Amino acid sequence: MSQETPVQSTDDQEDRRVSRRRMMRTAAAATVAGTAAAAVATPAQAAPGDPVRIDAPNEGSGLTSLTGSQFRVTLNGQQAAIEANNAIGAQLLLGVNQAPEFPPTTGQYYPGAIVNWQGQLFQCIESDGAANSNTRWSRLTNTGPVLNLLPHPIRVYASTNDPASSNAKIRAGQLRKIDTTRTPTGADSGVPPWADSVLGTVQLYATETNTGYLALGSGDIQPSGYSTTVWSAPGFSGVTSFTSKLGDPEGANFGRLSVACYSAASTARTHFFVDIVGYYDYDYFVGGPAAAASPDATSLRRVGGRTVKEARTPRTR
């Protein structure tokens, strides 16, 4: 009698296959669950002196630092996004020479970005936000006009060499306007058209009548009610220093200076000469790939809606 070979049930194989599928599904579900759990991590914790804690107090006297990483604070409210209080010390410290060059010719900057260059702070005021793009910067420190002394005093006006006025003396009641950016021969004086104001001297020569005075002021006004330099005798000669705002009749700044003559005597008149010692202006700088061709920064002024540039090395004070 032959012995029949037992027939193996397929139920066990199916059970094993199902079990393996179930195990794979279970493992996948566990992985997803683990990922979700990691995405909802608890706030980072650190002891004082270790990397900064997030949403947790940093107590103690140790230095808490953030190294090799960015730190961003975003707030859509009325309060300040960052507040620092220090009763006896600085609220903020930016390391000196933080920027490797200025203006930057590489990197990505947005309006509002601040860099420290040799102890001076500069803020980005214009950029398209792309990496290695052209940028415009404004100095945050020394925000007032900065005095630029010329190599030596430059004569920008001589009434004895003024063909437009027939080389004649200025007389009582007369107003003359001087272009401080040019010398009497038409050469460049060294004063840029965007200069805010000038420091100089005015010299009187061969005065007539006993008394009179000159008033100097911005080119867009009629100087009156004060005197810049006076004379009290005929044939007087003398020099007076002055500082004056510049401007023009349209209200823009093109280096114009107004000079008015006043006297109780209508016959009062005098020759006069104006020399410029230096000028004041505000510094703006342009950076980006285009600026890499020159080692100098580019200072610029917006004059009447136009941009005027001058190459220079950033001053540090």
Rank of each mutant, 00 (worst) to 15 (best):
G255L: 10
R25Q: 14
P151R: 02
Y110W: 04
I154K: 11
S159H: 05
S244L: 01
K245Y: 01
E101L: 08
G119S: 12
A33V: 10
A46V: 06
A39K: 11
R17T: 12
F102K: 00
S294G: 06
P184D: 07
A164C: 00
S224V: 06
R301S: 15
T240K: 09
S232C: 03
G278S: 06
C124S: 07
R139T: 13
R269Y: 02
P111D: 05
L66Y: 03
H271V: 04
M24L: 15
Q98F: 01
T209P: 00
T298H: 08
R136N: 08
S65W: 10
V274D: 06
W117V: 03
G212M: 01
V274A: 05
T74G: 01
L204Q: 04
R312T: 14
T270M: 11
M1Q: 10
N142A: 15
P153D: 07
L257Q: 05
S65T: 15
D128G: 08
A233D: 10
F273D: 13
M23H: 13
Y110A: 13
T267I: 05
T316Y: 08
Q78N: 13
T243H: 01
G247M: 07
Q8I: 12
T201D: 13
T185E: 13
A56T: 14
L199C: 10
G112N: 05
A233Y: 09
G190H: 04
A80T: 11
S65R: 13
L93T: 04
S232R: 12
G217W: 00
P145Q: 10
Q91N: 07
R53Q: 14
Y226M: 04
S266T: 13
A37E: 09
P100I: 04
T270K: 04
Q174K: 06
T42I: 09
T183P: 13
I125R: 06
V146S: 11
N97H: 04
T5S: 07
V191K: 07
A38Q: 09
